[in-house]
């Protein structure tokens, strides 16, 4: 997995609440058996018309935001399905960090498995960041995972919370499965115990 340490980049504003996984990557793009290549279809139904032409009003189509690496959005980002295609599409587009007042649970977890940092901040702080993002390409935000801070283009800084284990894995780019397999003996003995106690499982 790609490491995430510190990022300075353009932030795209999406001041919508309840941005769901069907908006992020509509179901017709789930028919892939690969993880890559979904970036062109990120937010497909908002980004393109039926003929596949870009909708010029959509934020990621505007010249200032085509290379956005950060997304600032409304409450309950990523609600809906468990599809990991959502973070795959976000990452493939080039976005490495999403900032919102809150995230849906499964989406939040999925981000960490794919080198994306989701940051939950209080609404008032997200409002400040949203304003900053609206300034366009001149406004570069800085996200520092080590220090757990987001800094606006004006130098205003906000601290965020992140689970220490998730932070560690993201900063080191660690593979979960490899880490868990180091504890195989604990799983073996647990399996032996429940095999005796709950044989019907």
């Amino acid at each position: 997995m790609e490491k995430f340490e510190k990022l300075t980049g353009i932030a795209a504003p999406m001041p919508l609440v309840n941005i769901d996984t069907d908006m992020i990557i509509p179901k017709q793009f789930l028919k892939t058996i690969k993880r890559s290549g979904l970036g062109v279809n990120l937010f497909d139904e908002m980004r393109y018309d039926r003929q596949g032409n870009e909708n010029p009003d959509f934020v990621l189509n505007q010249p200032a935001y085509r290379d956005a690496e950060i997304l600032v959005a409304g409450d309950n980002f990523g609600c809906g399905s468990s599809r990991e295609h959502a973070p795959w599409a976000i990452k493939d587009f080039g976005i490495r960090c999403v900032i919102a007042p809150s995230f849906a649970d499964i989406f939040y977890n999925n981000c960490f498995k794919n080198g994306i940092l989701p940051i939950a901040l209080p609404q008032e702080q997200v409002d400040v960041l949203m304003k900053d993002a609206e300034k366009g390409a001149n406004a570069r935000m800085t996200v520092d995972l080590e220090a757990q801070t987001v800094t606006t283009s004006d130098g205003e800084s906000f601290a965020f919370e992140v689970d220490s284990f998730k932070k560690h894995c993201l900063m080191e780019g660690l593979d979960d499965i490899g880490l868990t397999l180091e504890k195989a003996s604990a799983i073996d003995s647990f399996e032996a115990t429940i095999g005796a106690e709950r044989p019907w499982v």
């Binding site: 993880r35 399905s81 468990s82 599809r83 990991e84 973070p87 499964i106 977890n109 999925n110 498995k113 794919n114 689970d163 284990f165 979960d176 499965i177 868990t180 397999l181 195989a184 799983i187 399996e191």
Partner: peptide
Amino acid sequence: HGIGTSEVEHVLATQTLIQK
């Protein structure tokens, strides 16, 4: 509960999930 594809792979390989 639902899980993402990386977690599907994790469960297939280890029969466990990393959870809080």
